[in-house]
Write a protein that binds this DNA or RNA. Structure first.
Lengths: 223, 223
DNA sequence: AATTTTGGAGAGTATAACTATCTAATAGGG
DNA sequence: CCCTATTAGATAGTTATACTCTCCAAAATT
């Protein structure tokens, strides 16, 4: 497959594919001559994965590259790889120094995880993300009860069980990991969308008249 | 309060505050002279809200401005306002034209919402987000069973009920809305963090040895 | 033989969110 | 009242990300 065909099959402009090649996101095609290379189905699949993580998952290309580099490193076990991916797909949170509010929130996070008995590494970035959310709530003069946090945690764990249920560790490493990462990111987006839609529904029921919001209702909707 | 004090209390650089003023995110202080203005607690609160939505919620400043403009518009009811906010805090999804995969995914989304009986407007952007996730899963050659989507939906709705439970519609409009929006964004971040932590826990239990992932961890690990 | 495509490299563009500089007008301390 | 620091307001510069465009010589296609 030529680069132009790769472009047509994926819907990604040639210039962008070249950019991904330069950035090391996509492996080079097999060179057949000085100005010719051929690309395989693997390239197409990889390209689709990159676009899925970038467009749908909104992951920075640098993160995607780190993940793919790990995927291509045969030394790394499936388990480690998935762990690394879980770290890479989250945002990086800057931890402030000397901040009493932060320290308090961090204590709450740690106690919560302790109570839940979850097995997570001490340096998991998501701990910081949780702490940041709690600290910010605190700073705004708001608060969440621990009971509520537990309820959220139970819901989150139930979703996580579903997330990983379909992964088959007996599958080929390549396949299991690439699709495992894609599914983790994609299902999260689906879950977020459902969450928002549910909020709208609950909001309509709780304090809404039959006619819900509309900024300027365009006449014919795509149906 | 002078701008320098506002900066100290919020931790936001003066230059950035000026930028927010220019961009209309923060109302101007009360001018006391040609080169002097004084800022109130409301300004400080507003500034903290902006930073919370921007830093923690990763919302673009343009979105934040749109939300705040609506908050300041007394014409808009609490319900409409919250609906608008729910639209603004999600990503914008480009809808492709002429795409069979998309159309199929859209049908699944609509049928799902139909089955759930949720009351959401036909043009809710989250519908597109859900469709996009499903279409992308399809394009990668993967699939999700409808049963699983229902389970996610149930979890999402349970979380949504918690999200809105603490909002008091009898509260002052200003207070209810500003903090309602902040809480929606902040609790979502907390939920996402818990989700990731739960995934790590489940992953460790399902296909991990006692020692979970770490970028540089002891060798014992064979999957 | 003429036209198109390609790989590889570099430069240019768009957007977002700041950050820095400048000017004239104060404000506050001594 | 003088002097230094601060401020509002405006303009310009910076950084990061993700492309997008242009060029060139070689190879492929017509």
């Amino acid at each position: 497959m030529k680069i132009s065909e790769l472009s047509q099959h994926s819907g990604v402009p040639v210039a962008t594919i070249k950019y991904y090649l330069r950035e090391g996101l996509l492996p080079k095609g097999e060179a057949t001559a000085a100005t010719q290379a051929s690309y395989s189905q693997r390239h197409l699949q990889r390209l689709r994965l990159i676009r899925a993580l970038s467009e749908v998952g909104a992951l920075p290309l640098a993160r995607i590259r780190d993940i793919l580099d790990a995927v291509d490193d045969e030394e790394i076990s499936l388990h480690k790889l998935f762990g690394l991916a879980l770290y890479e797909i989250g945002p990086t949170v800057a931890v402030p120094e000397e901040d009493p509010t932060w320290d308090r929130a961090q204590r709450v996070s740690e106690e919560l995880l302790e109570e839940l008995g979850w097995q997570v590494t001490p340096h998991a970035p998501s701990r910081h993300r949780l702490t940041q959310a709690l600290a910010t709530i605190d700073r705004l003069g708001l608060s969440v009860e621990r009971r509520v946090l537990h309820e959220y945690a139970d819901l989150a764990r139930a979703a996580a069980v579903r997330d990983l249920e379909w992964i088959d560790p007996e599958d080929s490493r390549e396949h299991a990991v690439e699709f495992g990462i894609a599914m983790t990111v994609l299902l999260e987006q689906a879950l977020l969308a459902l969450h928002r839609l549910a909020q709208e529904d609950v909001s309509a029921q709780r304090f809404g008249p039959p006619a819900p919001h509309a900024p300027d209702d365009p006449p014919a909707d795509t149906s």
